Computed example of a mutant assay.
Amino acid sequence: MTNSKLDKPIVGGLLLAAGASSRLGQSKQLVEFDHQPLLRRTLKTLLHSHLNHTMTVLGARAHEHLAVIEHMATDTCINEDWEKGMGYSLKFGMLRLLEAQPALDGVLIAVCDQPFLTTAHIDGLLDQFAHSRHSIVASEYKGIQGVPAIFPQAHFGELMSIGDEAGARKVMAAHADQVILQHLEKGEVDLDTPEDLKHLRQKD
């Protein structure tokens, strides 16, 4: 089926930013990169893309994090049980996103600690999904398949049933033959440890 402007799939963005960054020792959401908190920068990247809707999931230090994205055009939900794990936050956010936008054809899952993520990359994933809307369209970096990734509606049920401490990669692995990859330059750069932050400061 060809995709006219009227036939573009409806894709919502789910930004997972509920964790406490315990290994980093400080809030990765508030780390300054490109002269702004990383949470704000990542959300801006999503909002400037062709996503139809965005839901941001906060949890630990929610009110501090909310302060850096207030007045931005995203729906926000606060997961009070964020300590249960990323899988729980994903499921929590999916529920809220689908309540707000029940007719989604796909959902793009993103995290806030990929400082080199660009709007062009998000739009590239969306373009690929428009042509292969029954496939999972994921990012690839250093041989890793990961987020940001778009999951079609057919996989929503699986995303909603993953373990509380699992992640979206479990669904990718279960459907490896349906995954289309797009390279994300420097996608492997994330913020988990103080050493990661030191390396990022050297690149900023």
Results as ranks from 00 to 15, higher is better:
Thr2Ser: 13
Ser4Leu: 07
Gly12Asn: 00
Gly12Gln: 00
Gly13Trp: 13
Ala18Ile: 06
Ala20Leu: 15
Ala20His: 13
Arg23Glu: 13
Leu24Ser: 00
Leu24Cys: 01
Leu24Met: 04
Gly25Asn: 09
Lys28Arg: 14
Lys28His: 08
Lys28Glu: 15
Val31Arg: 10
Val31Met: 06
Glu32His: 07
His35Met: 09
His35Glu: 08
Gln36Lys: 14
Pro37Lys: 13
Leu39His: 07
Arg40Val: 06
Leu43Pro: 00
Leu46Met: 07
Leu47His: 06
His48Tyr: 15
His50Val: 07
His50Ala: 11
Leu51Pro: 01
Asn52Pro: 05
Asn52Cys: 15
Asn52His: 11
His53Thr: 15
Met55Arg: 04
Gly59Val: 02
Arg61Ile: 08
His65Ser: 05
His65Asn: 07
Val68Lys: 06
Ile69Pro: 01
Glu70Cys: 11
His71Gly: 00
Ala73Leu: 08
Thr74Glu: 05
Ile78Trp: 05
Gly85Cys: 10
Met86Val: 09
Met86Glu: 08
Gly87Phe: 14
Leu90Phe: 15
Lys91Arg: 09
Phe92Leu: 08
Gly93Tyr: 00
Arg96Tyr: 13
Leu97Asp: 04
Gln101Met: 14
Leu108Thr: 03
Ala110Gly: 00
Asp113Cys: 04
Gln114Val: 09
Thr118Cys: 02
His121Thr: 05
Asp123Trp: 11
Leu125Gln: 00
Leu125Lys: 00
Leu125His: 01
Ala130Met: 13
Arg133Trp: 10
His134Pro: 11
His134Lys: 11
Glu140Leu: 07
Lys142Trp: 10
Ile144Pro: 13
Pro148Ile: 15
Phe151Cys: 10
Pro152Ser: 12
Gly157Thr: 04
Glu158Ser: 07
Ile162His: 03
Ile162Asp: 00
Ala168Asp: 02
Lys170Phe: 04
Val171Lys: 06
Val171Arg: 13
Met172Ser: 06
Ala173Pro: 01
Ala174Lys: 09
Ala174Val: 13
Gln178Thr: 02
Val179Arg: 03
Ile180Glu: 09
Glu188Leu: 05
Glu188Ser: 10
Glu195Asp: 14
Asp196Ser: 01
Gln202Ala: 12
